[in-house]
């Protein structure tokens, strides 16, 4: 007899509605709206530097990646030099200084997913998309990258695409996901 609660967290069905999603908002805003909203956030922060990563995120969503121009824009908004921001942008995993596809597929390659065959997931996606690790599909839809443990080890192997995690991947499931992403804007960032 199992004498404890067996808990397993899944959000297969839509989780409680989430009203404000910065991610999608900033991509939809006009540059002017975005600038105003970022300025407001910077104003609210204890120190502008606190918002550095947030601003970089927002501009990345707006521009697709952090181009030199986007970096200069961030520098202007935050009053930090482009170099100071580049020190951060080049440090973090989820800030892209090079052009990426509309969807960035981060396949977890840490030890639990590794045990559950992350390599075959990676190979499968690479084959399906016809790109290697780090590559972007010619239509600009997908970029394939590795990432470290996503914290979904209970549902390994897992991958993360634009803020949403997909677990217990199989070839079939991957096909479905890629198909979905190609066809429609997915609902707000929820784990699947």
């Amino acid at each position: 007899m199992v004498s404890c609660a067996i808990l397993k967290w899944r959000v297969d069905s839509p989780a409680p509605s989430v009203d404000a999603v910065l991610s999608d908002k900033s991509a939809q805003m006009t540059p002017k709206e975005l600038e105003e909203s970022l300025k407001e956030d910077i104003e609210k922060a204890y120190d502008p530097r606190e918002q550095a990563v947030d601003v970089l995120y927002a501009l990345q969503r707006q521009h697709g990646h952090l181009s030199d121009e986007a970096m200069r824009e961030a520098s202007r908004l935050l009053g930090m030099t482009p170099l100071e921001l580049d020190e951060l942008a080049t440090f973090y995993d989820f800030l892209y200084r090079e052009p990426v596809g509309k969807y960035v597929i981060h396949v977890c390659d840490s030890v639990v997913c590794w045990m559950h065959g992350h390599q075959s997931v990676m190979d499968y996606i690479a084959e399906r998309l016809g790109v290697g690790l780090g590559g972007t599909t010619p239509d600009g839809m997908f970029t394939l990258l590795p990432t470290c443990c996503l914290g979904y080890c209970d549902r390994a192997p897992a991958m993360l695409i634009n803020g949403r995690v997909y677990g217990e991947l199989t070839g079939e499931k991957i096909d479905r996901i890629l198909q979905e992403l190609r066809e429609e804007e997915p609902p707000l960032a929820l784990d699947r």
């Binding site: 030199d68 930090m80 580049d86």
Partner: peptide, 19 residues
């Protein structure tokens, strides 16, 4: 000075400028 510093991380750490 704020135009030269460490970029990237780990064994890829690079000391240089934005441009």
């Amino acid at each position: 000075g704020l135009d030269y510093g460490p970029l990237r991380l780990g064994d890829r750490t690079y000391f240089g400028r934005f441009t």
